[in-house]
Design a protein around this nucleic acid. Structure first.
Lengths: 250, 250
DNA sequence: GAGGACCTGTTATCATACAACTTGCCGCGT
DNA sequence: ACGCGGCAAGTTGTATGATAACAGGTCCTC
């Protein structure tokens, strides 16, 4: 007769078995994704998890590290493990690594962004409602009246994020989150060089098209806006020659 | 007088400092990304890293776990840490988690895939050369003559991957890698239900359009192919109602 | 009531020991 | 000479126990 726990999360030991850490990681990930801890957002302390899974604290700690690096939870001295918020940071980091290892450039990043943003604009235009229009209006205004570069960027990102949310497809939000994070540095430079007003004009044009309800106009406005951004990027720093076939993609 | 190492990778200790594990992770990531270990693909054993960074093995081990979960290296009993191959697996896994936590569906995934694939088709058509055409031809033939579902899927993925590589933008390859992995299960079912020949026809059409050199035709062929795939997906299992605004995206 | 000292729970790091696995080497037999 | 089995060294996986650093609440003082 086991304890009151429904399932018996006892790990398999012995020769030729999967390492304990992996078993614990998988088990904990399932528990987290099943929503078991959504109420409080807090996990049991590591010591308790040791008992529950019948492993030493080394194992639990390494599992924690792994889950932390997957942005499922955060740990810190003195506090118990906590659920991490839901955002595209993990995607951004894995993409970041691939970028550096594969030798991709800002140009490649911008190419992806253009594809996604245009489609986002199209879908958002089809789903547009009054409330979203209002939020977009507020974002534009904030970007216009922003005092420092930090605020400008935040408002800029907010505008695009609201659009992404309006698609009704959460993946667009996460992917744009990730791309935004990757382009953050360059954006700081381009916007910082007094190009903020240009971006604001682009956003205004998109907003106007959205109000008109004409999907094609929205797409065109977004394309124009992205063309501006790409141009700024080129002016900022030539991304260098684009290698056609890099070795080692397999 | 330090040893022959160029930089002194000594971690900062003391109160209010960044946890040692994080420092080590960052340092090791930089070393890896700088290409220092590209020659052999092997890292020094953990014991040696302990000495080099002046930390205990617990710290090194947790750092290894983290880097492993970022798909930068692989570790295993008895073997020293090795560099991991370059692919979209890490992106796939982080997206997977976001999918489950945000309640996204196969429909949302397919929407993203359509956007990317169409653009891939366009770029690939512009960059097409004889060798790539040949490789695509081989892939189609393999899919046609495949004997089991496994081979069919592999050939199917190969076709789309060759196209992605032909764009000259590595990000397309990685993103498609990730999406393919996420859709693997469903694809196994759809292709398994005797729909392989339909996919082959779609690929043939794309290939023919590519040979003609007409970009628009290529795009149309790809759109038709994706429409087929989307249709199969719907038949397979209704993805359920699409919630417009899910809570907790922020 | 406000502020600070203190105590408890928890994580961070260390040191050490042993088990399990990989790899290459050595010797044995054919 | 060649192959095969097993031994030995190197390396990672797991356990245990101890100490330091930190967060949060409690209680005491003024």
């Amino acid at each position: 007769m086991n304890v009151a726990q429904d399932n018996a999360p006892v790990v398999q030991r012995g020769q030729g078995a999967v390492p304990l850490v992996e078993q614990v990681v998988q088990a904990l990930r399932e528990e987290i994704l099943s929503g078991r801890y959504d109420a409080t957002g807090q996990l049991p302390p590591q010591g308790e998890l040791c008992q529950r899974y019948g492993v030493s604290r080394s194992v639990i700690r390494e599992a924690m590290r792994q889950l932390e690096s997957q942005r499922l939870l955060t740990v810190g001295r003195g506090r118990r493990p906590q659920l991490a918020p839901l955002n595209g940071q993990a995607v951004a980091e894995s993409l970041q690594i691939l970028l550096r290892r594969s030798g991709a450039t800002l140009f490649h990043l911008m190419q992806i962004r253009q594809v996604l943003e245009v489609e986002i604009a199209r879908l958002a235009a089809q789903n547009m409602d009054e409330e979203t229009l209002l939020r977009l209006h507020v974002a534009v205004k904030q970007q216009e009246q922003a005092e420092d570069v930090e605020q400008q960027i935040r408002a800029d990102l907010a505008f695009h994020r609201i659009l992404a949310e309006a698609t009704g497809n959460p993946l667009f939000v996460f992917l744009m989150d990730a791309l935004a994070e990757l382009m953050y540095e360059s954006r700081k430079t381009t916007i910082g060089r007094g190009l903020n007003s240009r971006a604001v004009r682009g956003h205004r044009a998109i907003l106007k098209a959205l109000s008109s309800g004409n999907v094609d106009k929205v797409v065109q406005a977004m394309q124009a806006h992205l063309a501006d951004a790409a141009e700024d990027l080129e002016k900022l720093a030539d991304p260098g020659p684009v290698e056609k076939t890099q070795p080692g993609w397999n």
